[in-house]
């Protein structure tokens, strides 16, 4: 059992948990993830690590309510327990002194990208970050990301805060400005990562994306998370989650992310009616 030491509401549907997991905190590196199982009947879902504190023995995860499990997770409070937390899994993000690195974060992607930006900067890179969200009330961790970046550009789709537009627009301008960019890291919704990769491709700048397919065990055992990169099948859990965004077969990823849409809907409706029933009682 893993105790939730702290819960924060970051936006109306994005939450932060600091969870007691000393062994994981000791080994975690930027870009890795954990698998959690909320209770005895829960499914195993992967969540990227957003931070860790070895002294405190804690790991920070940030998640958005998207399905039944994340909605159940959002009901937990400080002091509650998560039944299982396994990690750190996956390969860490490749950190070295590249020169100038652009970190592009979409929505909840700011959480995993912050430790990467911090590590990149510590290594001596100039870090330019772009943080995008649909609107102002869905933005979080602006200050955290600013504190580990040399420059931060914020965009919102509706223009309610920062610059109006998508993250790919300032990304393209930076690449066109003549400034030498040595690497781009993009983390966020798959569609955003795809378009970041498409934006950088004509400029020949290596673009690393962190893929988020469906997983079960997260240790290479099942192959549920297989993706095609450069025409070769890879297991995201052990070969990734970071891959070269220019080589990823995005359509395959999107299709495989939709495998259980019907079941997710069914499971959610079932759970909702249970919750409603419990409230009536």
């Amino acid at each position: 059992m893993y105790k939730i030491l702290l819960k924060q509401d970051l936006t109306p549907d994005i939450y932060l948990f600091k969870v007691a997991a000393p062994a994981v905190a000791k080994k975690a590196q930027p870009g890795q993830f954990v698998v959690i199982r909320i209770n005895e009947r829960g499914e195993r879902i992967p969540l990227t690590i957003a931070g860790w504190d070895e002294d405190e023995g804690s790991v920070t995860i940030v998640f958005m309510e998207v399905g039944t499990t994340t909605r159940k997770l959002a009901l937990l409070e400080t002091g509650d327990f998560i039944t299982n937390l396994i990690g750190p899994l996956g390969l860490p993000t490749h950190i070295e002194k590249f020169g100038t690195v652009i970190c592009v974060a979409g929505g909840v992607g700011v959480a995993p990208i912050a430790p990467i930006a911090r590590a990149m900067r510590r290594e001596g890179n100039k870090v330019i970050s772009i943080l995008g969200a649909r609107s102002k009330d869905l933005l979080f961790w602006e200050d955290e990301l600013r504190s580990v970046s040399d420059q931060l550009i914020v965009t919102t789709d509706d223009g309610s805060y920062g610059r109006k537009g998508l993250v790919t627009e300032p990304l393209k301008e930076l690449l066109e400005s003549g400034e030498r960019v040595d690497r781009v890291i993009a983390i966020g919704p798959s569609i955003m990562m795809k378009f970041c990769a498409r934006t950088t491709e004509p400029f020949g700048v290596k673009t690393v994306v962190s893929l988020n397919p469906i997983m079960v065990d997260g240790t290479g055992m099942c192959g549920c998370c297989r993706v095609s990169v450069g025409g070769v099948t890879k297991f995201t859990c052990v070969d990734g989650p970071d891959f070269d965004g220019h080589q990823v077969d995005w359509d395959l990823l999107f299709a495989r992310q939709r495998i259980y849409l019907d079941e997710e809907k069914h499971s959610f409706e079932q759970w909702q009616s249970q919750v409603a029933g419990a409230v009536e009682k």
Partner: peptide, 26 residues
């Protein structure tokens, strides 16, 4: 599916009792 994935979903995660258990299987 790999047999590992299919059997893990069914046996370990008890997908045969979905949605009582959260893990689905096709």
């Amino acid at each position: 599916y790999s047999a590992n994935e299919f059997l893990t979903r069914v046996n370990l995660m008890k997908a045969y009792r979905f949605p009582e258990y959260d893990t689905p299987v096709k």
